[in-house]
Design a protein around this nucleic acid. Sequence first.
DNA 1: CTTTACACTTAGAAAGATTTAA
DNA 2: TTAAATCTTTCTAAGTGTAAAG
Length: 740
Amino acid sequence: MAEDSNSVKAVEKELNDNPGSSGDVLVVKPKKKKAKAKGKAKPQHEGKEKTHRKMKTPKEESMDFEDSGDRRSQVNVKEEPEEDPGFVTKGKGKKRKRKVDNTTSEAPLPKKKKKKAAEEGQENSATVKKKIKGKKDKVIKEEGGHSVSTKKKKTKEEIEAARALKIKKKEEEEKQRWRWWEEEKYEDGIKWKFLEHKGPYFPPEYQTLPDDVKFYYNGKPVKLSLPAEEVALFFAQMMDHEYTTKEVFRNNFFRDWRKEMTLEERQLIMDLNKCDFGELHAMHKQKVEARKNLSKEEKLVNKEANQKIVDEYGCCVLDHHRERIGNFKIEPPGLFRGRGDHPKQGMLKKRIQPEDVIINCSKDSRIPEPPAGHRWKEVRHDNTVTWLASWTENVQGSCKYVMLNANSKLKGEKDWEKYEVARKLKTCVDAIRAQYQEDLKSKQMGTRQRAVALYFIDKLALRAGNEKEEGETADTVGCCSLRVEHITLHDTLDGQKCVVEFDFLGKDCIRYYNKVPVIKRVFKNLKLFMENKQEGDDLFDRLNTQMLNKHLSSLMPGLTAKVFRTYNASITLQQQLKELRNMKDNVAEKLLSYNRANRAVAILCNHQRAPPKTFEQSMANLQAKIDSRKEQLDLAKKELKQAKKEAKGSSDNKLLIVVEKKKKAVQRCEEQLLKMEVQATDREENKQIALSTSKLNYLDPRISVAWCKNMEVQLDKIYNKTLRDKFAWAIDMTEHDFVF
DNA sequence: CTTTACACTTAGAAAGATTTAA
DNA sequence: TTAAATCTTTCTAAGTGTAAAG
């Protein structure tokens, strides 16, 4: 590891080379990218690279120096490649296989998604019953809960009472709700008129280890100073995590840890491999276990204590209304867990002090008290922003904010607005599409690139792709930041023409892999863009997100690249729901359709998750159940046959009844089997698809609310409490005839 | 202009709670 | 009653996009 993160703050070479030529007059300004010193001292500990579901595709480093940003100015001018000798590429790493192949048809239209997939949601009346029962239990518990026998004695009236209570509570809550969507909006930029809160909640101070828990260096016990010990514990707590096996993580941790040590400690502890955190780790595990095994009463006590904190610190008053705060707790110190191959993973995230925190609130409010013996960094009264407190985090140097909960007015209003902008796009999307199709033929390179990028963003729902600072974060890209190695062009592939194969890491290092047939013009342009470029060069070397967004906002006020994602997600949901609509379905089937539509969107947006740890196991369990049910079915069938045989000819009523009974049994078996099989397919298909992100951020809730009304499905089958709170505005205002 | 700072949305993992199965 | 599966909540990283600063 000698020198790992060579802090490649790399030589930024703004080789602002003048494109030797072509009096680029007509051409868009050369964009200067941050030098991609992708030599990025990526200490690629080879070897590792295991089975990681989402491929952290190791693009093993490709060394190079700046690519001289060579720019072809005019389309038809094939420019001399002005190449750069210093460019060395070392192959790209092994790619990880993965499914999610949402091949799409053609035309820049929202794709038609395959609608196979089955969905959960077989719950219906059964669940309702359960719920009632659940309520009953709860009430009992509240009353000091006794054991089973008591439960059994609870009568119908009590169940009724419990239910009534729930309903009443709900109504009360409803009354409390601030119906901000019926109020007039504030003038531009003003977010609130009055804001009062208690300031953020700080994590507890570090408590030193008990004497019998020791850290060993080189086999010998070492009593660490408090700061060093705290950081050591951060590491020890993570030892079951893969992070702690990664070279980068270990190096970063060790470097930062040593900074916390006393001089003596630093002189002694020179090698992480000689550190033994075993006892600390064991202690931590034990604590976790103990917490899990607390008695009901103890858990309740904890819960109540917690609730108190939430009541005190988790709420604020904003313009006469009490609102929940989303993240009122200051992030506790720990080791930075960047995603993918993050160059800073393992670095120490320092403890935040009140002295680091800026408070924002009304001048005429009760100013929050800093913790005893401390003061705030600053108290300001800025009502053009929505945050209540902020601080600067030390690892990336970025700002962190304390903001309101998603069910607040501030967040809700913005969310609503977001969907309104997307709906507006619907009215002009045809014109915009026509325009970029035209632009594909433009004489200006920049315009063509913009058109192709837009085509991708629209058709594939790619993210905009802002530039990122090299070496500061994992190497991920979006549309505008795609590099030539991220796509492969196939004149024909699997019988399809003009296929573009995408393979890159997007946000959160989630791999995007897709083979997409594109229109010819796009394909030709891509070939052109890739001419004379090498790995590491930008595909769209004359485009960036600012240019793209500037153009978009000229086409429609408020339009930016991300609006396309919202628009295409929502419109896809609406279309799919329409297509799958069948009033004759039972609730379970309707829900299945809904979830399939949801899944189509999740696939479009490439929302993935790690397959649950127990996935294989639970899949096997389910399969076993299916198998045994099959046997049961066979048996039932045999018995039916037998019964029929016996009944034949005879007019003995008893025998006929037996036949009927057997028939029923077979039928029941078949139903259950089918249900389980559907569940299995569904689970399999959902293995690495995350439905929640789109539901939460991309799908206009009014589509779902209207669907529920039309299909006579209860809203809570689709939205849980949190979602219902967040989308209260939509639930309240949406009629059955809403159209996105 | 370009670069950087700021504010806010979007994201999956992990922790926690609840439900279901054994 | 326990264990496992599943759903919900919390957490905070990682994006987008705009405005201010240089």
